[in-house]
Write a protein that binds this DNA or RNA. Structure first.
Lengths: 117, 117
DNA sequence: CTCCACTACTCGGTGATACCGTGTACTGGT
DNA sequence: ACCAGTACACGGTATCACCGAGTAGTGGAG
């Protein structure tokens, strides 16, 4: 697949929020999970910048724990603000994707009042 | 709706390509059409920068024509490169949106080989 | 006739984001 | 002793949508 970086802007952070929201986890594992999910070209550096941003914006709770197979891991979990942000992300995604798919299908549709655009 | 600007990155240009592809048109009208389609906060300045970029990248064919109700209009139509770019855009959109929706639905699915991720 | 609204395009600068490369550091196997 | 895999941080870059101001043409209200 072609380069997706521009299209990922604004959505990748939401994906990371979703992953953290479903399970407390850490950067390296999030990167691997994203790769498995089809976001093949996302690399660690990108994920870490997102995680630092989430932390700076107060959307996550952080806990450092030893690993056993390498350096200590920073585990992330959503707090209330993070869950709210995640809900807003999915609302935006729903809004945007419905409109884009409508445009794709010809950009015409009928409202409840029968108005055709 | 909240601010969509970050999420629009990489997709708004594709939307403009789609609009131009379905009908030869000009910047001001494209902006109005996007607003009607639900991209309410997109303003003219944004659309014009996209159009200039498309022109610079050789994806469109341009024709200036008098208007009758204002300054002359610059009409845009896709050329072969533009149609190819549009096809790539929809392929990327399809790829990305399917993966994001999968993540939204729990991030688990079964391949044709029966492997569960 | 003058002002204003609407139409229509251009351009320099800003902020946000994903990406790149490099560096640091811990563990275990050869 | 070396190297691969794990794990995180950070400075710099490119791209993109957006903002604001400017320039112009037409037509209607006062």
């Amino acid at each position: 697949m072609d380069d997706l970086t521009e299209m990922l802007k604004g959505t990748l952070e939401g994906c990371v929020l979703e992953i953290i929201g479903s399970e407390e986890t850490y950067g390296y594992a999030i990167t691997r999970q994203l790769n498995e999910l089809g976001f093949a070209d996302v690399v660690e550096g990108t994920v870490y910048t997102i995680l630092l941003r989430l932390e700076r914006n107060g959307l996550v709770q952080v806990a450092k724990r030893p690993s056993g197979v390498g350096p200590p891991r920073k585990f992330y979990a959503l707090n209330d603000a993070g869950r709210e942000e995640l809900a807003k992300f999915w609302a935006k995604w729903q809004y945007l994707s419905s409109r884009i798919n409508r445009l794709k299908e010809g950009g015409r549709w009928v409202t409840s009042a029968g108005v055709v655009y």
